Simulated assay, not measured.
Amino acid sequence: MISAGNIRTFSHPVYFALLSAALVLTTLLPANAQTPQQPESSQAQPLDSTNPNVASPEAQNNSLLSVQGGQRLMSEASSAISAQNYTLAAKKLQDARQVFNQVSNFYQELGTSFSGIDNRLADTQRKKALETAQLRDDATYQLALVHRAQNKPELAVPLLVQVIRSQNPTRELGKKAYQQLLELGFVDAPLPRSGGASSSGSNRPSTSQQK
């Protein structure tokens, strides 16, 4: 039972001040406030072939920085050439050339990194570097032909020289590049028909970076 003394205590000004503050806090807090829910599971999911965050070989093939990405650009350039859209063709070939060049250099760096550690893996990467360098030189040669079609020999000549330096003049693509220089009048001495001139250079394309 509440006594008169209690009534006097409740009527004290301090009590009413505390009661008012409690009412204010109750008004400010949302009625349905709940404790934030924790995620059902905070454990990291294992990375496996079924995890969508792991890049699959098919996803890599769709990447621009890949052999397949460069080949798609080459195909697009071929379509542009057929339509005589040489500006677009030159852009696609330049992009393909840069992609092949970067990929070739990456394979070469991987081969060097594994040299003396895993020679089989190192040889595999070097082989890929050479194969991609060949694709780069093909794109460079095609780009030079497009510049010839645009009547821009000042752009074609440096590209043809790069092809010869990378391929070696005795290889088929090197011979074609030299023939283009001959037709442009940049050189005046044709290659010997017999190919009797000896060469001490490598019979493989160079994996050195092109600009």
Rank of each mutant, 00 (worst) to 15 (best):
A133G: 08
E109F: 10
Q108F: 11
Q98A: 12
A89S: 10
A122K: 04
A90T: 05
A129L: 10
S115N: 13
L110K: 12
L88F: 08
L88K: 11
L130Y: 11
S115E: 14
T112N: 15
S113Y: 14
E109P: 00
L135A: 08
K92L: 02
I117R: 12
R97W: 06
Q108W: 10
E131S: 12
L88P: 00
L93P: 00
S113M: 13
A96L: 07
Q125I: 02
R126F: 15
F106R: 10
K92H: 08
Q108S: 12
L143Q: 04
T140R: 11
E131L: 11
T124S: 12
V99C: 01
S113W: 11
D137T: 11
E131C: 06
V103Q: 01
A144F: 02
G111M: 07
T140V: 13
R97M: 11
R126H: 15
D118P: 00
L110F: 08
Q125A: 15
I117N: 10
A89F: 05
T112D: 15
A122S: 14
K91Q: 13
V99A: 04
L88G: 07
L143G: 00
A129E: 03
A90P: 02
L135E: 07
L110T: 05
A122H: 05
G116L: 06
Q125P: 01
L121D: 01
A89T: 04
R126N: 15
R97P: 00
V103Y: 03
A139T: 01
I117A: 11
D123N: 14
L130S: 06
G111I: 05
L121H: 05
L121Q: 09
S113K: 15
A89Y: 02
D95R: 08
N101C: 12
A129H: 07
R126P: 06
G116N: 09
L130R: 09
G111R: 03
L143R: 00
T140L: 10
S104F: 10
R136K: 14
R120P: 00
T87G: 12
Q125Y: 15
E109I: 11
A139C: 07
F100I: 04
A139Q: 01
G111F: 04
T112P: 02
T87Y: 04
L143K: 02
T140A: 12
S113P: 02
D137A: 11
N105T: 08
S115V: 08
Y107M: 05
K127M: 10
Q125W: 14
D137F: 09
T132W: 04
A133Y: 06
A144Y: 03
L143S: 03
N119H: 07
D118G: 02
D137S: 14
G111W: 03
S115M: 13
N101K: 04
S113F: 13
N101Q: 09
K92G: 00
Q108G: 09
